[in-house]
């Protein structure tokens, strides 16, 4: 059984993209992962197909794939920029995405080319409202 909108953990200090990626700014770096709604909907995540360090992505382009036992879904980059670090722990411990999606389950760190793109993302309230609409 999946969570109801009011049960979701959506921290207030980060931003959310439409496909439920989250983004946290740290200087000129943006840390990206999947939010509680996405990990809950996907169920047990078994593999995360990561980009390579040095690759660049435009905002809203596919930068990773997440596999559960019976589904695959694409992750879209919330900002444009270059991948400067990937969470290598996910290779052997994909369950971190389910267990700690805002902490140890982060995906990538992106050196953003335009931090203003963060403004187009949703805050936690909007994100929760969008889930209710779904």
């Amino acid at each position: 059984m999946t969570k109801e909108a009011h049960e979701l953990n959506l921290p207030a200090d980060i931003k959310y993209a439409k496909a439920h990626e989250w983004a946290r700014v740290d200087g000129e770096i943006v840390i990206v992962g999947l939010d509680d709604y996405a990990q809950d909907q996907l169920g047990d995540i078994v593999f995360v197909e990561m980009p390579e360090v040095g690759e660049t992505f435009d905002k809203d382009s596919v930068f990773a794939n997440v596999e559960s036992v019976k589904a695959v879904s694409e992750c879209y980059s919330p900002v444009s920029g270059e991948i400067v670090e990937i969470n290598e722990r996910l290779e052997d411990e994909p369950e971190l995405v389910n267990n700690d999606c805002y902490g140890d389950g982060w995906f990538v760190k992106i050196k953003a080319t335009n931090l203003a793109e963060m403004d187009s993302l949703m805050d936690h309230e909007k994100c929760r409202a969008s889930v209710k609409g779904e």
């Binding site: 078994v46 593999f47 596999e67 559960s68 036992v69 019976k70 589904a71 695959v72």
Partner: peptide, 10 residues
């Protein structure tokens, strides 16, 4: 296993 590679899912 690793069915997510396959046509019936992907």
């Amino acid at each position: 296993t690793l069915s997510a590679r396959e046509q019936h899912i992907r």
